[in-house]
Design a protein around this nucleic acid. Structure first.
Lengths: 193, 193
DNA sequence: CTTTTTATTGTCATGTTTGACAATTTAAAA
DNA sequence: TTTTAAATTGTCAAACATGACAATAAAAAG
């Protein structure tokens, strides 16, 4: 009975549009008008399906963190037991599998965390989990390395990954991808000494 | 004759307030109202002294890039001829001399560069100059290193520096500063092999 | 004290963003 | 065809952001 609901697909479209807007305009710059235009819907429909701005932001954060964890865990479990670091580099620094908007969105959330204690808490957990996972991964492959070395290299890899994508708006990724990858290799190599 | 002009000092105060706002709210989030409040002036005064929003943004960009170049050149020329990289690390990763807002502002400008071709051009030049300088510095100290190694390590150092400050809103800088520094050392050390 | 120059305050019009809700249309079931 | 539930469109008011300008107050010089 009644007209079939499009709530799920519409919500999906809207959140995807929001995601793209955040990558381009940041969280503050992503007005409901822009999100509506980006999704090809009227603003009233955005409100109808996902509620007001606060709820929309909340849904985006949930979604980004959830998808992030899901893909990251999937990626982790796809890594070989022997020398997973080689594949890790491939995953982090190949422009094939990389979603250029992903880190821009994450960085926007981290930036916004400076004004939102609850978001800060969540992003802390997210970041800590990320670095811990990398550290654990490296620990298995480089058993002789110290804890300090492992955290240093983990943070280094993550910094290279984050920074490369953060600089994307400059349009010089072609120039920086190779240095980033090579620096990452050098860091990994330092664990053998 | 006539009342003495406060244009210079007021402009200074306003631009400093704008700077702080951008570090906290980003470029889009820095409304004239907020800047006025942050500087302790009325919005009409902001307009009186620095003009409309576009001019204000333009002045901020000029100022940030100019100050950046000035301080960076000053820092560079303060480095010793022998093993300058040691002091370079100290400058990049000690929380003493570091202005925590600086990289947040720079990153905000880089982000905004994605929607402004002219700004993109300027930030490209700025970034290129920065990496070139680091590369030149390392080239002098590690004469045997290849060009590829030098760009990789330069980009690595810069990534660690940028990322550490970008994560500041998470409030975990105490945790990440040491790993960042140590990763930087490992990168430098890789130039000896 | 008057003039001159500028700071300072206040206000008004315009456009944008958001929240809320009424009115209409559409698609499916009975 | 009627009923029903939901999509879709449209509109209104409140809040906020911006630009422009008038009116007033303050500080220095003559």
């Amino acid at each position: 009975m009644g007209r079939p609901s499009k709530k799920e697909e519409r919500t999906e479209e809207i959140l995807n549009a929001f995601y793209r807007c955040v990558a381009r305009y940041g969280l503050e710059g992503s007005t409901l008008e822009r999100i509506a235009e980006e999704s090809g819907l009227k603003r009233s429909l955005v409100r109808h399906f996902v509620g007001n701005r606060d709820e929309l932001v909340s849904m985006l954060v949930d979604r980004v963190l959830e998808q992030s964890n899901q893909q990251w865990q999937g990626f982790l479990s796809s890594l070989p037991a022997e020398q997973p670091s080689t594949e890790l580099l491939e995953g982090l620094f190949s422009d094939q599998h990389s979603d250029g908007e992903y880190i821009l969105v994450i960085e926007s959330l981290i930036f916004a965390a400076g004004r939102d204690a609850q978001l800060q808490q969540r992003m802390q957990v997210w970041m800590q989990g990320f670095t811990d996972d990398v550290e654990q991964l490296l620990k298995g492959e480089f058993a002789s390395a110290s804890e300090d070395q492992l955290s240093a290299v983990s943070f280094g890899l993550i910094s290279l990954y984050f920074n490369l994508d953060s600089l994307a708006p400059l349009g010089m990724n072609d120039r920086y991808r190779q240095p980033a990858r090579q620096a990452a290799k050098a860091l990994l190599n330092s664990l053998n000494h």
